[in-house]
Design a protein around this nucleic acid. Structure first.
Length: 943
RNA sequence: GCCGAAGUGGCGGAAUUGGCAGACGCGCUGGAUUCAAAAUCCAGUUGGAGCAAUCCAGUGAGGGUUCGAGUCCCUCCUUCGGUACCA
């Protein structure tokens, strides 16, 4: 009768924790604090997926473990609730997105509570809450009111921006434009995907192959005035800040590659006639390198100024401002046509496919500043407008892209770096028939010949700088952040655009007064697109859209913020979720920040983490937070795949084809190596057997089948629903299984049988304490008040030690394995000391909290196990009188001897040599060397 | 192409960081219990040879360093993930 029944136990303890506020977090920590954070979910209509509880269980264990060790723990949860699916639903049904969003949040909350996570639910928030996005809007205003001081490397109030005298002289409009151009949040034209047929602007992921995902209508890229955030100003700080973070090195590298710092030089090439070159050069040499190159020079950025002598042509991007003036009349038509074609290509098209390089000669030449030689200027879309100066000097001998282009258009290739002599294709390189991108010795480089690449770099940089022709420069791949979306379901911008008496925008704008926040979303009768290339908020009534302030009329900004906005700072709001005076109280912020552990999926490795860090640094500069970095330690949980599946391939006649003969087809499907199409079919486990390295059909071992776990997806039908797992095995079993599968960071396949295995363990724990043979709830008669004997004590303290260390290191799978060993051991014991059982339950309680609470109560203990103290272990209890030590001959184990654990090297060797087995194995061989590692082994090198 | 991670029994995975390879769990085999089954308990389970004691091989492949390598170094193969002309 008294079987372990999670369906009864779990809801009861969840209700208990809630009623008793067991996990309520104090406003300020007492003693050591720990902030343990999950990446909050987007509450989709599908509900929780078994991937979610993986990270959540890990952080829950860490939180419960820390509480048991007396720390103050902040462990909150919330919802990243703005997003496209809810808006699409609203467009279809006319129902306000808030309604579906709320019901999804309710469902997520129910599922999360069902798993027994120890969140402080009073701190829960959703980014869609007005009292939350009020502060998201506030932070936007901070960005709007801040400029970046490059000298101080710091964001400062816009009121402190120095206005250059020449701007001052031009009057108020010029000053206003200057100020607006320096804000961290600024307006700029950016391309959007406009679909005239749908009458709406589409997100990049809604566009497939240049057509709308819905309906397959053509999509045009048109420029729209949009908000940008000047994250590039913070590139250097974002890069430097990575160093001290306890993050996986892979993630740090991804971020640092994304920021993409490179160092090199900017160099000006004269674009006038050859006979004017010397005059231009001498004019340049008397002044410093100018901020702007002027109309007679083309400025390039290069990381290899040492190859300047090998520049045989130049390329400007199709969007380059000087292109028109560089284009000759003869080439005008061709250039115009080329640029038009390039403008129609989306970013994808420009980068996808074989990337055959294309370009057109502009008709003009520039003069290489180091040797005075004229070289042709081309326009080509392999040069990007947004990077460096949007123009390059092409050195085909030492750059793969330039080389490919030069080969195609038969431009000269001059080697200026001599590769190491042992390089197999050195002769080809020197002859200009191959490309070499590494370093070597300069050749064909006039006065630089013979010097090494680094030497030439610094020499050329110095001489260019001296002559006012170039300067050292740093560039970043990171681009400014396009921060507006043409969507309804997002945070409105707290910005007003001034209108003139005709109702036209004057270009002036102001932020909404912070005391007037939030700017709520307008009420709309429906959410259908209005058909203009403008955001949906433009559909709002005039009441919402127009504002009169101080006698001036304004129109509200109608773009909304992207989903990133709400997730950029939610970790701060958990600290002080109800504060109406500030986004977070400074005292509380100082006490709880930074986040001591942040767990989430690697898909957010770059953008979310980078954006958050950027906002945090701005808030730090402007005095809203005290910490320089938000997330001190980061862990990425691995993906959970579906159950392992076997699949075979059948040709069109239904005959099986060995997987060995199948390859990926160009269209993404599968085909045989001779090009016949095949289809994958699922094969039942019992029709398959292992043969050598692979699995084959039992009925035809010549047919190899694939054995693989796939990503969970609706279309594949292999999604595991946590509701069903909890229903069948219990929440504790689900939690435990997710942790027992393998290391947290690893990608691993789901196995329902594995869940059964850990459930079996929980049953054993139950039966170790409760006698389930009886009709009534009775303790096992083996339980005793006696203390542990020596062996039991060693098992107990060994388990405390292992579980403490492994939990601390988040090596949950091995901690669980040890607790299984404990249970196996004590189940065999005729006498089970209650003290040992109690300590064990505390160890297990972060992992399987409901079961442990119940058993704690059954053992007659007062209160709740969550409020107990983590046991400590006694090192002395771990010592054994005698240990088994292997004796190796030449590194191979031959026998084992018993030794005291503290035996020293000499004693170990002596004991090994005295052993009968060793003597007989030794025979007449001679011992060359004797090695002993105390407590571990003896190794004899024999001949 | 480039970057990153990983390859260990039938399967998921352990291995105090250079020291007994396969902990723990699943699965499988045998046994106990049962009228029978479920459940439970006990034993076994890397492969090969042998009645056996035992011996040989073995951590993707090949080489190297070392008394000793799953672990370190070099070359290669495979899988997964990310990324895309950033001069």
């Amino acid at each position: 009768m008294p079987r372990y029944n999670p369906a009864d136990i779990e809801p009861r303890w969840q209700a208990y924790w809630e009623a008793n506020q067991t996990f309520a977090t104090p406003d300020l920590p007492t003693g050591k604090k720990r902030y343990v954070l999950d990446m909050f979910p987007y509450p989709s209509g599908d509900g929780l997926h078994v991937g979610h509880p993986e990270g959540y269980t890990a952080t829950d264990i860490v939180s419960r473990f820390a509480r048991l060790r007396g720390e103050s723990v902040l462990h909150p949860m919330g919802f990243d609730a703005f997003g496209l699916p809810a808006e699409e639903h609203a467009i279809r049904t006319g129902e306000h997105p808030r309604i579906q969003t709320q019901s999804n949040i309710d469902n997520f909350t129910r599922q999360l509570k069902m798993l027994g996570f120890s969140y402080d639910w009073d701190r829960a928030l959703a980014t869609t809450d007005e009292k939350y996005f009020r502060w998201t809007q506030f932070i936007f205003l901070v960005l709007f009111e801040t400029w970046f001081d490059t000298d101080q490397q710091k964001g400062r109030p816009i009121s402190e921006l120095p206005i250059p005298a020449e701007i001052q002289q031009q009057g108020d409009v010029a000053i206003r434009q200057y100020v607006d151009s320096k804000r961290l949040a600024y307006l700029d034209d950016a391309l959007v995907n406009w679909c005239p047929k749908l009458g709406t602007v589409l997100a990049n992921e809604e566009v497939v192959d240049g057509k709308s995902e819905v309906g397959g209508h053509p999509v045009k890229r048109i420029p729209l005035r949009q908000w940008m955030l000047r994250i590039t100003d913070y590139a250097e700080r974002l890069l430097e800040g990575l160093e001290d973070l306890d993050w996986p090195t892979g993630i740090k590298k991804l971020q640092s590659d994304w920021i993409g710092r490179s160092t090199g030089a900017e160099v000006d090439f004269y674009v006038g006639s050859e006979d004017q070159f010397q005059a231009w050069k001498s004019q340049r040499s008397v002044a410093e390198f100018p901020v702007q190159p002027g109309s007679d020079a083309l400025r390039v950025y290069t990381t290899r100024p040492d190859t300047l002598f090998g520049a045989t042509y130049m390329v400007v991007s199709p969007e380059h401002p000087m292109l028109e003036s560089l284009t000759s009349d003869q080439q005008a038509a061709a250039v115009k046509e080329y640029c038009e074609k390039a403008s129609f290509k989306s970013d994808r098209e420009r980068t996808e496919g074989d990337r055959e390089k294309t370009g057109v000669f502009t008709g003009s030449h520039a003069i290489n500043p180091v040797n005075g030689k004229p070289i042709p200027i081309w326009v080509a879309d392999y040069v990007l407008a947004g990077y460096g100066t949007g123009a390059i000097m092409a050195v085909p001998a030492h750059d793969e892209r330039d080389f490919a282009f030069a080969v195609k258009y038969e431009l000269p290739v001059i080697a200026v770096v001599d590769p190491p002599e042992d390089l197999p294709n050195r002769d080809e390189i020197l002859a200009g028939k191959a490309c070499f991108q590494a370093v070597g010795q300069a050749i064909n480089s006039g006065p630089m010949n013979g010097f090494s690449t680094p030497e030439v770099k610094s020499k050329i940089a110095a001489s260019l700088s001296q002559d006012g022709l170039g300067t050292e420069a740093v560039n970043y791949k990171l681009r400014d952040w396009l921060f507006s979306r043409q969507r309804f379901w997002g945070e409105p911008f707290p910005i007003l655009h001034e209108l003139d008496s005709e109702g036209n925008p004057t270009g002036a704008m102001r932020g909404v007064d912070p005391s007037e926040l939030p700017v709520r979303l307008p009420e709309l009768s429906d959410f259908k697109p209005h058909g203009r290339p403008e955001p949906p908020l433009a559909k709002a009534d005039d009441d919402w859209l127009y504002v009169t302030l101080d006698g001036k009329r304004y129109r509200r900004e109608t773009n909304t913020m992207p989903q990133w906005a709400g997730s950029c700072w939610y970790y701060l709001r958990y600290i002080d979720p109800d504060n109406e005076q500030a986004l977070v109280d400074p005292e509380k912020e100082q006490a709880w920040m930074g986040v001591d552990l942040y767990v989430g999926g690697a898909e957010h490795a770059v953008l979310h983490l980078l954006y958050s860090r950027f906002w945090h640094k701005v808030l730090h500069d402007r005095g809203h937070v005290t910490t320089a970095e938000p997330f001190l330690k980061l862990v990425n949980q691995g993906m959970i795949l579906g159950e392992v599946e076997y699949s075979g391939y059948q040709d069109q006649d239904g005959k099986f084809v060995s997987a060995k003969l199948v390859r990926k087809a160009a269209d993404g499907g599968r085909e045989t190596k001779d090009g016949r199409q095949v289809t994958a079919v699922a094969i039942a486990d019992d029709l398959v057997e292992k043969k050598g390295e692979n699995f084959v059909l039992k009925s035809d071992p010549a047919v190899r089948v694939e054995s693989r776990a796939h990503k969970m997806s609706k279309s594949r039908g292999n999604v595991v629903n946590p509701d069903i797992v909890v229903n069948e095995y219990g929440a504790d079993a689900l939690r435990l299984y997710e942790m027992f599968m393998g290391p947290l960071e690893a990608t691993k396949p789901w196995s329902m049988a594995g869940v059964g295995g850990v459930r079996n363990f929980l049953d054993r724990v139950w039966r170790m304490i409760v006698d389930d043979q009886q009709d009534e709830l009775v303790l096992q008669s083996a339980l005793t008040d006696q203390p542990c004997d020596e062996e039991q004590n060693r098992m107990l303290h060994g388990t405390i030690k292992k579980v403490t260390e492994d939990t601390d290191e988040m090596s949950f799978n091995t901690a669980i394995a040890r607790m299984m060993e404990f249970t196996n051991f004590f189940t065999r014991q005729e006498s089970r000391p209650i003290e040992a059982m109690k300590s064990f339950l505390i160890l297990l309680s972060p992992y399987a909290p409901h079961l442990c609470e119940e058993l704690w109560k059954i053992l007659g203990q007062d209160g709740c196990i969550a409020n107990q103290t983590w046991p400590s272990y006694d090192e002395a209890a771990l010592v054994q009188a005698s240990i088994e030590v292997p004796v190796q001959f030449n590194g191979k184990v031959k026998t084992k001897i018993q030794l005291p654990p503290d035996a020293v090297v000499d004693a170990m060797i002596e004991a090994a040599l005295a052993d009968d087995k060793v003597k007989s194995l030794l025979g007449d061989k001679t011992i060359v060397k004797k090695i002993a590692v105390p407590g571990r082994l003896v190794n004899l090198v024999v001949k």
